[in-house]
């Protein structure tokens, strides 16, 4: 799940390319992470050209075949080709991870910026956020899923909704620190309008921690998707996602372990890669910690 960062407010301003390079030199793991992630994205993009067949085509006669030359990763309960499902599953899992990260940062940032600055709004919004946070994300997701129906968009909305309060809290704490900074106070004294202060002075300073937070959200969203599938509130079952393939095959884990193994390895590798990348970025963007590494 998300590492709700305790990132101290950054001392530096926006990141520079040199800092990135420097950190990646110090962090070979982050480079490995980046490469793995890139490979997974390529896998997702190139899915139709990687020797796959229709991942939804069922052939009951050929059900539960062990991995072989014909079926590289074997077949599942309905005789679907697991290799094709895993490859196409990369598309769904990665889209969910990236979309959740993007939208929760976007929404959380907007709410956090405004509430961090408008005190009267703050109390109300934070109570609502507390309320949202106190409902376990899985519960929220199940209700939402039942509300409409299982679809990828709904999975994204459900997980995003659960992540937003955490981003809001982070942004708010950043804003609260930043507004005390002399240059912001000076801008206020000079009569700069609120939107301008937010965009010119506050926003740029939230980029770095949010970027890092985004990678963690992305990683955790992919895991949460798997858990939702397990409970039956995830991606629609005919559309393959890594979590979905594993959840559907879970009762067979002792009989057809390959059904869980291949998507599991892909999911773990990707989550690992994204997390490593995030760690690398955190160290690059936060010199105070990076010095210690």
């Amino acid at each position: 799940m998300t590492a709700v960062t305790t990132l101290p407010a950054p001392v530096s301003t926006s990141p520079t390319l040199r800092q990135f390079k420097e950190a990646f030199r110090r962090h070979p793991t982050a480079i490995v992470g980046g490469i793995v992630l890139l490979l997974m994205i390529l896998l997702a993009l190139l899915a139709p050209w990687l020797g796959t067949v229709d991942p939804q085509a069922v052939t009951p006669i050929k059900r539960l075949k062990q991995p072989s030359a014909e079926f590289w990763f074997g077949t599942d309960m309905l005789g679907r080709d697991v290799y094709s499902r895993v490859v196409y599953g990369a598309r769904v899992s990665l889209s969910i991870g990236i979309a959740v990260a993007f939208f929760s940062i976007l929404v959380g940032l907007s709410i956090g910026l405004v509430t961090g600055y408008l005190r009267w709004l703050d109390a109300v919004v934070m109570r609502v956020m507390d309320g949202l946070m106190s409902i376990p994300p899985v519960l929220l997701a199940i209700s939402l899923m039942a509300l409409t129906r299982a679809s990828i968009e709904n999975v994204i909305i459900a997980i995003t909704l659960a992540e937003v309060p955490r981003v809001v809290r982070l942004v708010r704490s950043l804003v609260l620190t930043l507004r005390e900074q002399p240059y912001v106070e000076a801008a206020v004294a000079a009569g700069t309008s609120l939107p301008r202060i937010l965009v010119r002075h506050i926003l740029p300073n939230t980029t770095a921690p949010l970027l890092v937070q985004g990678t963690y959200i992305c990683a955790s969203a992919m895991i949460t998707e798997a858990i939702l599938s397990f409970i039956g509130a995830g991606t629609p079952p005919n559309i393959p996602s890594w979590g979905n393939i594993m959840a559907e095959a879970r009762s067979l884990f002792q009989i057809a372990g390959y059904l869980i193994f291949f998507p599991g390895v892909c999911l773990s590798l990707t989550v690992l890669a994204v997390n490593l990348l995030g760690d690398g970025m955190r160290d690059a963007l936060d010199p105070r910690l990076a010095r210690r590494m």
Binding site: A57, P60, M77, A146, A150, G232, A233, P237
Partner: peptide, 27 residues
Amino acid sequence: HAQSLLTLDMLKRLGLNAEVQAGDWGT
């Protein structure tokens, strides 16, 4: 669930415009 996916596949092979809408049994 198994029957739904089999029927979907069959309808598609017949060239019909079919889709599965999944939920739980309660739904």
